[in-house]
Amino acid sequence: MRDEVDGLVEAWRSERPDLNVEPLQVLSRVSRLARHLDRARRSVFTEHDLEPWEFDVLAELRRSGPPYELSPGRLLRATLVTSGTMTNRIDRLAAAGLVTRRPDPDDKRGVLVRLSDEGRERVDAALADLLSYEESILCEILHADRERLAALLRSLLAPLDETPAHQRS
């Protein structure tokens, strides 16, 4: 079986035999896979009238467990956006009826963002469809191979997640 990356690697080996193009074997495939998955996720979310960022915020609230509420600070740390961006996102989600705000009883100046019933139904349905699609992608890979692939990808990703991009050399 061949894919687009095989041709790309062969061309670079021919044009630049002085370089080790082996990283392309893995990372170009990861990059291409990410693009395919991003398109598929957007399609699934669109079916549920959600933007990817909306799903991310709603999913973070849903994973938090009952009562499905978090501070805006917790949400922005989990979704890696700025406070201004998170405020805008919460405003938009509240206007759509997917979340509500309430005063934080432990912080007089703070608020808590709570997943509404509609938000919970929408994120649950989108997640079920997303997982069904992702399972269809992985169905030909044995369980043990999935676990090994997950472990290998984790070993690549964990150090990147721990070190901010501006500190990497």
Rank of each mutant, 00 (worst) to 15 (best):
E162D: 15
A144H: 15
S43V: 07
V21L: 10
E54I: 00
D3Q: 03
A151P: 04
R41K: 13
R39C: 05
P72T: 03
A94E: 13
N20W: 00
P164C: 03
I141F: 05
C139H: 15
L142N: 10
F45H: 03
R2H: 14
L37R: 09
D117S: 11
I141M: 11
R16H: 12
V5S: 05
L142P: 15
E47T: 06
I137D: 09
I137F: 11
V21H: 12
Y133V: 13
S169Y: 10
R168S: 07
L160F: 11
G97I: 00
G84F: 04
A128D: 14
L61Y: 05
P52M: 09
L8W: 12
S132E: 14
I90R: 03
S71K: 06
H166C: 10
V99L: 06
E10T: 13
L50Q: 01
P67E: 08
V123G: 08
W53T: 14
E69K: 02
L33F: 07
S43R: 08
P105L: 01
R102N: 08
R39D: 15
E134L: 11
L130E: 13
V113Y: 01
E147A: 14
L98A: 06
A95K: 10
L160D: 12
E118D: 15
L80E: 14
R114W: 04
R168Y: 06
D145M: 00
R101G: 01
P17T: 02
T163R: 12
E162I: 05
T46F: 02
G84I: 06
L142I: 03
D91F: 13
G119L: 07
G73R: 13
T79S: 10
P159G: 04
L127R: 11
